[in-house]
Design a protein around this nucleic acid. Structure first.
Length: 545
RNA sequence: GCACCCGUAGCUCAGCUGGAUAGAGCGUCAGUUUGCGGUACUGAAGGUCGUAGGUUCAAAUCCUGCCGGGUGUACCA
């Protein structure tokens, strides 16, 4: 295709003396395989009639791979490729635009001592897919996680937990493993309520929050360590159930705390200023907002820990890029942190990138609790599982992950997702299960016919050509998704592809047909393509379901 | 107040490096089956792309104003 593009550019350059970077674009099948608007682009500059220019160009372009080229509409040039041209596309490889790059990406960051909720699941799935795209682009990807193991929320939990154990940490042993998550949620909720309604409790919790940094008291330390371990075990299980690839390192706010404060203090004055006793970064000068990095008490705040984390990631991985995926509420916050990091550590300028996501919204009353609280991840899994069962499907972790991932990834990153359990779990329409089914169906044909009877793609019939054409778009779609780090392009494409397959399937028998060997080849190409695409989304494509 | 994000079919969303008649799912209505997995396929209805201007041969797409919704705005994370 490069060659054909170049032929256009060369001709336009020699004939009209115009340098352009016009590229060929996929077009509606009824027009051909590719089209270009190059004639209309240059006609204006030349003062010529666009159709006439197009005719001149068409008359001077020829290539082995082109079987038809003509002018249409106001001056489009439509190109139809030969079968071998289409096959070349189907057999090409995606580009590796991140080759030789090391990147770090946080693929989950729920806090311990609190239950994971649907927002964490959303964030984790999106980040894991961005990581997949980076890998597909050839990057050496390090998946890490980052967790808030210190601070106020820990104080809230510890308040309830210490009351519960009442001086005897071994009481925690009585809690069954499968009840720990619910127990921790309850502890946090109780502490959180007390913090709001009870002045004495508030003071105590503030004190416990401070202790979370030091953990000097043996009982505190024992309860803290036990529950933190429980939390991480649970987080790892839940993240795995979502279909995320494992992370290789867990960073903690407590690890980032001291070095973060040091970075801030080393750059004050300079990057930071002292204001009202606190150390502040004047982000408002950089399109963010003024933000305190160190409190007037001298303790590091969230922002200084992020600074410390940036330094830590660099020490471990020396990445060219470091991605942090967060909710859009933190967009301006990260803008400030990233600018500050670049000023404090000039070597790391432009390394950290914040990708901001939308929010998961819940349409029916079914999944939102009355008080407006967030949906616990356990409930999310349960609801999806029920929905799959109620339509007669088998509810295993692979199916549940397919439902969640596809639903979350379908929307352009940055937009909100309305999560309707029944809709997402449905096998009809644009959903994860539909794609899995469309894959299993193809594998079933392959199994029936037997892969040894595969033939070559020659003398294709229109339906066969059409499917081959669609398969050939895969790598272009992946390239775009990789370049823009937007997985939803892959979702949209895979849905169109499987629709195309189902249409083909409807009218073209494979097994036993006289064109069996040709069609089998096509079905195999299709099945491999959709499996590869689903893999990129972190969705398993079982042969049977 | 200021900054950022968003506004496309009844609902949920694609399309936004400007291009041919604005697409899809769900829902609604009407069809298809002695056949490789009907968990499928075909068709119909449904849109002044929030609004008013501007740029352009060409605007859902770029620019500006306005209207509507959301988020952020230092010692929480």
């Amino acid at each position: 295709m490069e060659r054909i593009s170049q032929a256009f550019l060369n001709f336009v350059n020699s004939k009209y003396g115009i340098d352009t970077n016009i590229v060929l674009a996929r077009t509606d099948e009824k027009f051909g395989d590719f089209s270009t608007n190059i004639a209309m682009q240059i006609a204006g500059r030349l003062g010529h009639n666009p159709r006439q220019v197009a005719e001149e160009i068409v008359a001077n372009i020829s290539d082995d791979l082109i079987t038809d080229i003509q002018v249409a509409g106001p001056g489009f040039i439509n190109i139809t490729l030969s079968e071998s041209g289409l096959i070349q596309f189907a057999e090409s490889e995606p580009q590796r635009i991140y080759a030789n790059q090391s990147v770090v990406i946080e693929t989950n960051n729920p806090n311990p001592f609190k239950a994971m909720h649907v927002g964490h699941a959303f964030n984790a799935i999106l980040a894991d897919n961005v990581a997949n795209l980076l890998e597909a682009g050839g990057a050496n990807v390090f998946r890490v996680s980052y967790h808030g193991d210190v601070g106020l929320h820990v104080g809230k939990s510890m308040y309830s937990l210490l009351a519960y154990v009442d001086g005897d940490a071994s009481k925690l042993d009585q809690i069954a493993e499968n009840e720990r998550n619910a127990f921790m949620s309850k502890m946090y909720a109780t502490g959180s309520t007390a913090y709001k309604s009870d002045e004495t409790a508030k003071l105590e919790i503030d004190e416990l929050a401070k202790q979370s940094f030091t953990r000097e008291d043996p009982l505190f330390a024992k309860v803290y360590d036990t529950c933190k371990d429980w939390s991480f075990e649970q987080i790892d299980r839940d993240v795995a159930r979502l279909g995320n690839k494992p992370t290789e390192r867990r960073f903690l706010e407590s690890d980032a705390e001291l070095r973060g404060v040091k970075i801030v203090k080393d750059n004050t004055p300079g990057v930071f200023i002292e204001s009202d006793g606190a150390i502040v970064f004047e982000g408002s000068k950089y399109g963010a907002f003024d933000n305190a990095f160190v409190s007037k008490r001298g303790t590091g705040l969230y922002a200084s820990r992020d600074l410390g984390l940036i330094q830590l990631k660099n020490e471990y991985y020396h990445p060219q890029k470091s991605y942090i995926v967060t909710a859009e509420e933190q967009r301006d916050y990260f803008k400030g942190v990233i600018v500050a990091a670049g000023l404090c550590m000039p070597d790391l300028k432009d390394v950290t990138v914040n990708i901001s996501t939308g929010t998961v919204l819940l349409p029916s009353g079914k999944m939102s609790s009355r008080d407006g609280a967030v949906v616990d991840i356990a409930l999310l899994f349960e609801q999806v599982s029920e929905a799959i069962k109620s339509r007669g499907g088998t509810s295993d972790d692979i199916s549940i992950a397919a439902v969640l991932r596809y639903q979350f990834l379908q929307v352009r990153i940055g937009g909100d997702v309305v999560f309707d359990v029944d809709n997402a779990s449905s096998v009809q329409g644009n959903s994860g299960p539909y794609l899995q089914y469309a894959h299993a169906r193809a594998r079933s044909i392959i199994a029936k016919v037997g892969s040894e009877s595969v033939g070559e793609l020659v003398d294709l019939q229109p339906d066969e050509r059409s499917l081959l054409r669609k398969i050939g778009e895969y790598n272009e779609v992946v390239d775009r998704a990789v370049a823009e780090l937007l997985p939803h392009y892959v979702c949209n494409y895979l849905y169109e592809l499987s629709q195309g397959f189902n249409k083909f399937y409807e009218h073209n028998r494979v097994a036993g047909d006289e064109r069996e060997s040709v069609r089998l080849k096509l079905v195999m190409l299709y099945a491999d393509t959709i499996k590869s695409g689903l893999g990129l989304l972190g969705i398993h494509a079982p042969d049977k379901m």
